[in-house]
Amino acid sequence: MTVQNQQAVARYRNDFLREVEERVEDGEWVKMCMQCGVCAGSCPLGNAWQHTPQKLFMMIRAGKREEVLTSDAMWMCTSCYNCIVRCPRKLPITHIMHGLANYAHRLNIAPKGQPTREVAKLFWNNLAKTGRVNELKFSLAMYFKDGFVQGIKNAMAMQSVGLGLVKAKRLNPMELFGGHKCKDTGSFNKMIAKAREIEDRKKGFTS
């Protein structure tokens, strides 16, 4: 169990609903769910998930912390917003899904290797360095995420597309060496650190 997770468990003991309310984005809405199941019925991918939003909310209320935070369900949300549009209680369900995913990720108990989570991590790490998305590096990171050999195979398969992009001047190979940045990377990094600090304080994270 991660340190953050241990701290959270100690702090909220059995009251997982309160934990969600205080620490998950839009989590205060969970208590307002009336279990009608319209979200579950509206989700285009609902039957591909481990749990529907309706079930997740019920599990939160029933205190099923482990099951909720390790579920893959909220990672599978494609943000189609069908559930938000249809929820008779006006719950921002899509946002809650992302909030739960983010929280599980912060506690580091989200499912390992979950593709959405992996892509999100790569994207964030790429962006947070320079304040700009380096598309070349991001693509390469995606190719090589499953190891070197798989990476070479992926790169070979995409070779013609890559060369085409270079020819059409949509891809600059020189980006591999540093690449473009925002004007003041130092300040950008400070900004990100400050935002994190504020959020941690608001949500009661100690580290």
Partner: peptide, 14 residues
């Protein structure tokens, strides 16, 4: 009234 109870934190379990 139901909504008000939910706001107050009453848990409803089906």
């Amino acid at each position: 009234f139901y909504r008000s109870a939910q706001q107050k934190g009453v848990i409803f379990t089906k």
